[in-house]
Computed example of a mutant assay.
Amino acid sequence: MKAIQDMMAVNHCYGCGPANKQGLQLKSYSREEDGELISTYARFTPAHYHNAGPLHFLNGGIQATLLDCHGICTALSDAYYREGRAVGTGEAIWYATGQMDVSYKRPVEIDKEVLLEAQVESYTEKKTVVNCQLLSEGEVCATARVTAVKVPNSWFEERT
């Protein structure tokens, strides 16, 4: 199965863009049931330099970036599914974060893989609200409510 990010053209995002080799390289995947998108998931293994002040915990900004990117990719995937086409086919669909509310529940140990899960809460033509959670060892460590706003393709044109 191909990651959502790998089906998008020219994605330079720090958190999830395949075109950004210095980024986190998050890979999100869709879960389908009866041909419908029901949720998304991603796994991420932190590196030692993703630490917070204490060396053994994952930085909160990195957690927020993972939740943000996973939420946006969930909205994007959902938009393609609603149009009846595979991610990356036809005219591109893009979203940007309009708002994100993050709640940190517990520290994330730096040497443990994290799991991200997300589901679409609601959508309109121009905006999708996604609920995400970041888990470590089966425990919810952070949650986010991401409001993804549809943006024009011109945002992604190369500029010189």
Rank of each mutant, 00 (worst) to 15 (best):
Lys27Gln: 14
Glu109Thr: 05
His48Ile: 12
Ile110Tyr: 08
Gly138Pro: 05
Met1Gly: 13
Trp155His: 13
Ile93Tyr: 06
Glu125Arg: 15
Glu33Val: 01
Ile62Met: 11
Leu55Arg: 09
Pro152His: 07
Tyr41Asn: 05
Leu134Gln: 07
Leu116Cys: 11
Leu24Trp: 03
Cys73Asn: 15
Gln25Phe: 01
Gln22Thr: 11
Glu32Ala: 00
Ala86Arg: 15
Asn153Ile: 09
His50Gly: 07
Glu139Arg: 10
Ala9Asn: 13
Lys27Arg: 15
Glu109His: 09
Leu58Val: 12
Trp94Phe: 12
Gln25Asn: 06
Ala144Ser: 09
Thr65Leu: 11
Val151Arg: 08
Val120Gly: 07
Leu134Asn: 03
Val146Glu: 01
Leu67Ala: 04
Asp34Ser: 10
Gln99Ile: 00
Gly17Thr: 06
Asn153Leu: 09
Gly88Asn: 06
Gly23Thr: 04
Ala3Pro: 05
Asn20Met: 02
Glu33Gln: 12
Ala9Arg: 05
Glu32Met: 13
Glu33Ser: 10
Ile110Val: 14
Met100Val: 13
Arg43Trp: 02
Thr65Ala: 13
Val120Asn: 05
Ser39Gln: 12
Gly71Trp: 04
Cys13Leu: 07
Leu58Lys: 08
Asp111Gly: 14
Lys127Trp: 01
Leu76Asp: 01
Lys150Ile: 08
Leu37His: 04
Val146Ser: 02
Cys141His: 03
Gly98Val: 07
Val120Leu: 10
Val130Gln: 03
Val87His: 02
Phe156Thr: 04
Ile110His: 07
Asn153Gly: 14
Lys27Gly: 00
Phe44Thr: 02
Ala118Ile: 04
Thr124Val: 11
Arg85Asp: 06
Tyr123Ala: 15
Thr97Leu: 00
Glu91Met: 09
Asn51Met: 01
Tyr81Phe: 10
Thr40Glu: 04
Thr128Glu: 01
Ile72Arg: 06
Gly53Ile: 10
Gln99Ala: 14
Cys16Pro: 01
Thr147Arg: 05
Ser136Asp: 02
Pro107Ala: 14
Ile110Met: 08
Ser103Asp: 10
Met1Ser: 14
Gly35Tyr: 00
